[in-house]
Amino acid sequence: MGIKFSLLAVLALVLVAFLGVEAIGMNYLFGVLVPYLAFFLFLTGFIYRILKWARAPVPFRIPTTSGQQKSFSWVKQNKLDNPSTKLATVGRMALEVLLFRSLFKNTKMEFRQGPKISYQWEKWLWLAGLAFHYSFFIIVVRHLRFFMEPVPGFVHLTESLDGFLQLGLPGLYITDLLFLAAVTYLFIRRVVIPQMRYISLPADYFPLFLLFGLGVTGVLMRYFTKVDIVKVKELAMGLATLHPTVPEGIGVLFFIHLFLVSTLMAYFPFSKLMHLGGVFLSPTRNLPNDSRIRRHINPWNYPVKVHTYEEYEDDFREKMIEAGLPVEKE
């Protein structure tokens, strides 16, 4: 159900861009207005979501730990899995953000031969996730060549490393293959593993199809059907210098690609893709485990009106004496 819905949604997006440009000729809408609107939504939506999260108080330390916490001097602390200082927490976060360390610890549980449980090493998700994220990152950096003039050195460096196989012309980019392979794996994994399929929603399939569509249109444009790259850059530079122009004669494939990117940007803040910002705000990762070292005061504490025993006795002293109850002050 979710698969069909998501696939149809992405196909509908492709069709909208195709018809909008090819049949009605709304090049300006799809080339300028939609991308600007999507980029605006992306930035403001992202900031909104982050600020909304940042308004939620985190009164106590709730890090998920998987190592020995700081204890006696003769017990060795696992500083990265159970950090107690700010520096170690930053280190832990860096490993999490850059290397997906918690995914690396992924295991697969299976029942074998009756009631025996076995846990297995399962690194494929980690590997595909890492390949996907780094490919996507490199692809985004490479795309800066369309948005910057003169093209800065780090973009050239990324390109030459990515294309160092020098296979065919235009040269093959390794990340193009990796990206499509990783997205395909992540999709197949969802479909093939029954538990994964059971918990998968349209919100899981839709981004995968969208990214796959992005990759396919990009690959088609570069290696197969071609678009006029100089005009593409003219359009991109127009967007980046705030003097938008839509040159004639860019292939419709480019507009489909651009519309899918716009969809991705507009969809981003409202979806699970917000883990880009959310990973930094996740309190089970970004807090040091110093619950027993520092005193943490609940930030929403307010002075509570209390009625002490002395005051209580003042109120009822005579009645207490009458009833024969012991009192502290006569």
């Binding site: 930035l43 992202f46 982050i50 850059k233 705030l242 910002g277």
Partner: peptide, 23 residues
């Protein structure tokens, strides 16, 4: 963090600011 995010994602705007780029 948000400033870094916005700064990074708007690089093209800063980089090309005030620059005319003829095709």
């Amino acid at each position: 963090g948000l400033a870094i995010f916005v700064g990074l994602f708007t690089i093209p705007f800063w980089y090309n600011m005030g620059r005319a780029v003829p095709p």
